[in-house]
Every structure is written in structure tokens, then in C-alpha cells.
Amino acid sequence: MSGSNSAYVRTAILAAEPAPPGERGAMAWLRKNLLATPKDIVLTIIAVAFLAWALPHLINWLFIQAVWQGSDRTFCATAVQGGIQPDGWSGACWAFVNAKFDQFIFGRYPIGERWRPTIVGALFVLLLIPILIPKVPRKGLNALILFGALPIFSFWLLYGGFGLEIVETPLWGGLMVTLVLSFVGIAVSLPFGIVLALGRRSSMPVIRIVCVAFIEIIRGIPLITVLFMASVMLPLFLPTGWTVDKLLRALIGVAIFASAYMAEVIRGGLQAIPKGQFEGADSLGLGYWQKTRLIVLPQAIKLVIPGIVNTFIGMFKDTSLVSIIGMFDLLGIVRLNFSDANWASAVTPLTGLVFAGFVFWLFCFGMSRYSSFMERHLDTGHKR
């Protein structure tokens, strides 16, 4: 209104006020997360009481009474058993893990040739880190080297030939085999799972029936059965004189099994895409593959990142099942060393299993945290 006084209108935005003292700090977090309701208070008291009882015993066994150095079982055994412990078994026998650490990592790989898997591991880490960092450029070239060139180079370096001593795959073992199986399973299951998910949603009956049959049959069979079929039955279908390496059979079995589960995860993401996205792509004149590659798949994969990583974590842990077909992954090589008479004691097996469990947890927790990071990085409006 002309002539009205507008001097009261503020021309600058007020600075944000700090949160009230009762809404910030450690006490506010405790009230909100642990003491919000009577039920929360009771559960918190029970949890704190349990931790107060269990943690001292756990810390004492793992660290305080643990044996860190030693050359055989006598350092962890009681005096009655011929050991040096005077009044009972020691805590964790980390001397056993220290003595067998190289075997836990490399299995029975020849000692003089272990520089080869070390180089492969270093190259894998150097190529993986740029893939995981969103701001690093040339992702396509990096992925081509990581998933294309590195497996070929790694197989030559690990197996040998062309100037290198040949190391048969039955000598491979430990964490090296666990990582090989996991890497191949992840690298194969994701693209194959995408193809199977798209095929299951295809309008072509033959393709849809084949994909549905593959997914449902594989998902209905335990991984142990798949590994047995790959290890025992597959050679029966090969011509006389032909053979397939046992590690390759395990790789095929794990990849096939993971692909079926991955397909259902991806299909869930495809079904979550609004119909308007498909119609918008059609209105732009995009073909099926253009629409799928540019519009549908990026959104679907982003929505199901937790499911994808969950499948990867499950597959990483399931690699321990290859021990039933005579291969020794990390858990298998740890258990194999329990039979070493030089380290036979009551605390050796538990210590070895704790070590193996911690290694598995470390990798799985890392994948979980990176999954959360990528969810936050790619969040563009689906978060509620």
C-alpha cells in the first residue's frame, strides 16, 4: 500500500539460534536413545548389567591372561598337561595365531613364492580404492583394469607358467582363497543378476521362463549341494580325459548361487521404479536398452544397495563352505591347524575361531559401512 510505513520489515535473515541446552550433548543423547520410556530404561539397565558382568571376563581372557609369544603348546597348557601355566589354562593363545599366521593368509602356498599373492593383493587394493572413492575420475578405465585385466594377470601370477614356478590350486588356501572366491563371486553375480532380473521381467515368454526356472531352482538348493554338484557331478558330464580345476568348479558354483539371489534383489529395485519413469523414457523415444541403461537401472540399483551388500556379505561368509569339497579357505585352514600336535591345547581351537571370526567380521563390517556411505552419497529424495 502506497504511503504505508515499511520500516518494520526485516531485510536480513536472523542467524540460527543454538539448540536448547537440554537438546544437545551426551545427556540429551542418553535421554533420547536409552532412557526415553520406562521400557527403554529397564532394557538399558539389563544391558549395562550384562556388559558389566561379561566385559571384564572377556577382556581378561582376550588380552590380560592371553599368551602372545611362544613356540608350542606348552606356553598355553597347564603344568599337568606338560605346560608352563601353573594353576590353570591361560587366556587366549595368540602365540598359536602368531605362529600360524602365514598359513592362515596363504594356506599351503610355497613359502618362497608367497611374494606373488602379496603383489596380487597390493594391486587389488590399489585398484579398488579409486573405485570406492566417488570423486576419483576415470571410473570406467579403473573398472576395466580391476575386473578385466587384473584377474588374468593375477591368475598367471598365482598359478605360474611362462617363467614362473607352477603352484597347483590345491596348495592355495587361507584368506587368499576366501578373497579370490568372494571377488569372483561379486564380480560375476552382479551383472548376471541384473541380466536374470531383466529376463524375469521380459515380455518374451521363453526368456522369462528360462530365467524364472534358473532363479527358482538355484534358490531352492543349498549352496552345499551346488558345490557338491560342481565338484562331483560336473566331471561326469565331461568327455573322457577332460577335467576342470577344483577351484574353478567352486568359483562357478558360488557365482551361480549368488547370481540367483542377486537377481531377486535387483528385481525388487526394478519393481520399485514408478511407472511414470518408464513412460517418460518412452515419450523421449528411448529404446529398451537405452531406457534400461540410462533411466531404470541407475535408480533401481540405488534403491537396493542394502540388499546388494547384504548378498555380498552372505556370499563372503558362505565361502567357508568350500572346505567340504577339500578346499581350505580361512576357516578351513584354521581348523586344519587344530590337528597340529605341537599346539594341541584346550584354548587353541577357541583362539583360532575367534581370530577367523574377527577377520570375517572386519570385512563384513567394512562392506556394511561403505554401503551406508554410498546410500547417503546417492540419496536424492527417496529418504523419508
Results as ranks from 00 to 15, higher is better:
308 I>E: 03
114 R>Q: 13
126 L>H: 02
267 R>V: 02
306 P>H: 09
104 F>N: 03
318 D>A: 15
107 G>P: 03
116 R>P: 07
327 M>N: 04
80 V>E: 15
267 R>T: 04
179 L>R: 00
42 V>Y: 08
136 V>T: 15
137 P>I: 07
241 G>R: 03
379 D>N: 15
320 S>D: 13
30 L>E: 06
162 F>P: 06
337 N>C: 03
173 G>I: 04
319 T>F: 05
341 A>E: 08
234 L>A: 09
169 T>W: 10
142 N>L: 14
271 Q>F: 02
268 G>K: 02
80 V>L: 14
60 N>C: 08
342 N>W: 00
136 V>P: 07
13 I>Y: 10
367 M>G: 05
263 A>W: 04
304 V>E: 12
59 I>L: 14
13 I>P: 02
227 L>W: 03
170 P>Y: 09
122 A>E: 08
140 G>N: 09
240 T>E: 15
20 P>F: 04
28 A>T: 02
119 I>G: 07
43 L>M: 13
192 F>E: 00
364 C>V: 05
295 I>Y: 07
116 R>G: 06
86 P>M: 07
360 F>P: 01
144 L>S: 15
71 S>E: 11
219 R>Y: 01
105 I>K: 04
208 R>E: 15
12 A>P: 00
335 R>I: 08
47 A>G: 12
44 T>D: 05
159 Y>H: 15
115 W>E: 09
154 S>I: 08
305 I>T: 11
85 Q>M: 11
169 T>D: 12
108 R>E: 14
83 G>V: 01
59 I>D: 05
257 F>P: 00
91 G>W: 00
67 V>P: 01
312 F>C: 10
224 I>D: 05
